[in-house]
Design a protein around this nucleic acid. Structure first.
Length: 278
DNA sequence: AAGTAGACTTGTTAAG
DNA sequence: TTCCAACAAGTCTACT
């Protein structure tokens, strides 16, 4: 499932492919893929526009247009953005095709149809209006350990540290997989109350989070055999091999050998080692 | 007003 | 072998 490192990998693939291109045509073949606005509005806002940059905030991709709008994409569980030629077979679950001015296409595929595309107005800082509620980006925005600590505490009274990490209004980009990995690396139990996290623990979580996210970007993201994440050229990432706890319930903890456990925290499947995480 | 729960969706997996 | 219930996920909305 695409989280920050996977979205960043796709972004890096798309920058050279999209930058400077002009949109010739847009077709939407699945209603749900574009659900925040009428399809004709979506298409009209894109047609004829030049694509000037591809950015990311959290798990959202932002394709800048030479207008006051941006094309915003969220891949959710199973979405893919793929570069293609008009001659390529249309893969199953292709919902949106954007034709460019150089005989190439950007295609949006999504079997589970959680993902979406929309065109949104941007503010003076070129942030799409719909994304104004997002917290700072987990890798692009610099933040100090103490600022991060305050964000985790965040006036929370009863919620867990894992819930705090998953809250996109606090910090944007961390999803279920990397939250589990970072908490394991920092030795913090996912069920700990956010309010109980000490400064040193917050610093450890932030350090682990940064290190893991950057390593995952370097490995071009996490892919599982049964799951859909691939880059813009259809190739899987290599980070799944390095997971310490995620998807390893019942297997030995890489640090102490104890069995990794799986439970539910913040309504998400959560993997941890009870001996290494206090 | 923080926090929780439900809705959305479907390919895959587990269970029987 | 076949069928079905359970499961996975992130975000938005609705409610407590």
């Amino acid at each position: 499932m695409p989280e920050l490192p996977e979205v960043e990998t796709v972004r890096r693939d798309l920058v050279p492919f999209l930058t400077g291109r002009t949109v010739h045509a847009v077709s939407v073949s699945r209603d749900r893929a574009v659900r925040r606005q009428p399809h004709p509005d979506f298409i009209a806002a894109l047609r004829g526009r030049r694509l000037t940059d591809v950015r990311r905030h959290g798990k959202f991709l932002i394709v800048d247009l030479d207008s006051d709008d941006a094309l915003v994409v969220h891949l959710r569980m199973s979405g893919q953005l793929r570069v293609a030629s008009p001659r390529d077979d249309l893969a199953k679950h292709t919902h949106v095709v954007i034709d460019l001015d150089n005989e190439s296409q950007l295609r949006f595929l999504d079997p589970r149809t959680f993902g979406e595309m929309f065109v949104d107005e941007v503010d003076a800082g070129r942030r799409p209006l719909a994304l104004r509620g997002l917290g700072p980006d987990a890798v692009n925005d610099k933040l100090s350990a103490s600022a991060f600590h305050q964000m985790i505490l965040g006036g929370r009274t009863t919620s867990t540290v894992k819930a705090a990490l998953l809250d996109q209004t606090t910090l944007a980009g961390v999803g279920n997989l990397y939250a589990d990995e970072a908490l394991f690396a920092a030795g913090v139990h996912p069920k700990r109350l956010a309010a109980s996290i000490m400064g040193a623990e917050a610093a450890a979580i932030l350090k682990a989070l940064r290190r893991i996210l950057l390593a995952a970007i370097k490995a071009r993201g996490s892919s599982f055999p049964d799951e859909g994440y691939v880059d813009a050229y259809g190739k899987p990432g290599g980070f799944a091999l390095r997971h310490q706890v995620y998807g390893r319930a019942g297997q030995a903890c890489p640090r102490c050998g104890n069995a990794i456990e799986k439970t539910v925290v913040a309504q998400r499947g959560t993997h941890f080692c009870r001996r290494c995480q206090a």
